[in-house]
């Protein structure tokens, strides 16, 4: 069993290298406070908070950093408020 596992495994170092490259590129960028993803996150949330209370049940923020692109997903559940509409 041991021998079989030894030969059937692929190398893990390339995965480590790729993960580190992505991570460090982002960390170096954010050290200078220029992390665009974080800036956008904060500004979007600030905009939302002008109109409704940010409730973690209703606003979810997900982020995935990638090699070429990162994705920021802000999911907002907007309550239907009839009185507000009239104002």
């Amino acid at each position: 069993m041991n021998l079989f596992r030894l030969f059937s495994r692929s190398q893990s170092a390339p995965a480590a290298r790729e993960r580190l490259q992505v991570l460090l590129a982002h960390e170096r960028a954010s050290a200078g406070d220029s992390d665009l993803v974080v800036k956008l996150r904060d500004e979007i949330l600030r905009a939302i908070s002008k109109h409704m209370e940010i409730d973690s049940e209703k606003v979810s923020v997900k982020l995935e950093r990638g090699v070429q692109v990162s994705t920021l997903v802000v999911d907002v559940e907007i309550p239907f408020d009839a009185t507000r509409k009239a104002a």
């Binding site: 993960r19 996150r41 923020v61 982020l63 995935e64 950093r65």
Partner: peptide
């Protein structure tokens, strides 16, 4: 990193 979630920390 050890958990493999380093790209998803918000």
């Amino acid at each position: 990193l050890v958990m493999g979630a380093e790209r998803r920390v918000v």
